[in-house]
């Protein structure tokens, strides 16, 4: 457990897609690491590159249409240097994923129990009976009521909250070291969202797995994250502990995002909206991508990429205005 090398590290990751309108630069040189047992939230709006980053960590992006560069290391292995066969061994066993829409992610023609058992048999070469027994344990672990009966259920026979629990059970089937969760509670109702977030938090604490959670919701980050990375136009513009980033954001985009999020106490006051809209990823400006919407824009912002500045409290901010540690 006291292994000093991170479980996962990402260095200079770039992802670009060929589209009819040109090359969309979805992810533009991001770096981060994930320690064992750590919960990292990638927080950003649509088009910020958070989900693309997550998919890149499982090598799920379509290889024909995407150009990927940079280095992703998982448990000491260079992900993009591995043959496909080895990547399949990693998926589900070392890294596994929970998607936003369980109805689309689960197979509609197999029962929940069969889908979980299949994963266990694939990775651990145990008997079908043993895999079935483990599947039942997993459904109980994610608190699905009358789990034994639910093993025989098809995804369409379950409610949204139950389906998401079932997908979490499937993702945890082989005790992965890293769980990737892409907006896992966005499609759920408020009361169910809270149930699933608390479940994820409990499972993380019990198993000690590391989690990367992608979300657009500051509340989800506040409820789950140890560290938060705020993304904008394919770059991490601010990265630090959850308390640092969520309570005293430094990057003008992060500040603006929190100011424009409606919360109690704003009634009858005008909202501090960020003007404009996120940039077109096929035509990113040469300088800071947020500059056109930034109240603190100066000449230096448009000249080149802003430097990544490490502040005195160890957080990293991508802005010419950030003050570096002495």
């Amino acid at each position: 457990m006291s292994d000093p090398t991170p479980l996962l590290s990402v260095t200079g990751l770039n992802v670009a897609f060929q589209t009819p309108r040109g090359t969309a630069q979805a992810v533009n040189g991001i770096d981060f690491t994930l320690a064992r047992g750590e919960v990292l939230c990638l927080l950003g709006e649509s088009g910020s590159g958070k989900s693309v980053t997550l998919r890149a960590l499982m090598r799920l992006l379509p290889e024909q249409r995407s150009r990927i560069s940079g280095r992703v290391t998982i448990a000491g292995e260079d992900l993009y240097g591995l043959p496909e066969r080895r990547v399949e061994d990693l998926r589900g066993k070392v890294v596994s994923m929970v998607f936003q829409e369980p109805m689309l992610a689960l197979d509609p023609v197999y029962t929940i129990g069969a889908q979980i058992a299949e994963t266990i048999v694939r990775h651990e070469r145990v008997s079908k009976a043993e895999a079935g027994r483990r599947a039942l344990e997993l459904l109980e672990k994610v608190q699905i009521p009358s789990a034994k009966r639910r093993l025989e259920a098809y995804p369409h026979e379950m409610s949204g909250g139950m389906r998401q629990r079932a997908m979490i059970a499937l993702a945890l089937a082989c005790n992965p070291a890293i769980l990737l969760a892409d907006e896992p509670t966005t499609a759920l109702d408020a009361t169910v969202q809270m149930q699933v977030l608390l479940l994820l938090r409990r499972l993380q604490a019990e198993t000690g797995m590391a989690v990367i959670m992608v979300t657009h919701d500051i509340g989800v980050a506040a409820e789950t994250a140890d560290r938060v990375a705020v993304m904008y136009a394919g770059r991490i513009v601010e990265q630090g502990t959850a308390a640092q980033v969520l309570k005293t954001p430094q990057h003008p985009y992060a500040t603006g995002l929190f100011a424009s999020t409606v919360h109690a106490g704003l009634k009858d006051r005008r909202l501090d909206a960020i003007p404009g809209a996120p940039p077109d990823l096929t035509a990113l400006p040469p300088g800071c991508a947020f500059a056109p919407r930034c109240a603190r824009r100066r000449e230096a912002c448009d000249v080149g990429q802003p430097p990544k500045i490490r502040m005195a409290d160890a957080r990293e901010v991508l802005c010419v205005d950030a003050v570096a540690a002495g």
Binding site: A190, Q193, L197, L198, I218, A222, E223
Partner: peptide
């Protein structure tokens, strides 16, 4: 069931 916006004051029970 509203989410907290403060990581130091999280929701503890459903």
């Amino acid at each position: 069931a509203r989410l907290s916006s403060d990581p130091e004051r999280r929701t503890v029970a459903v």
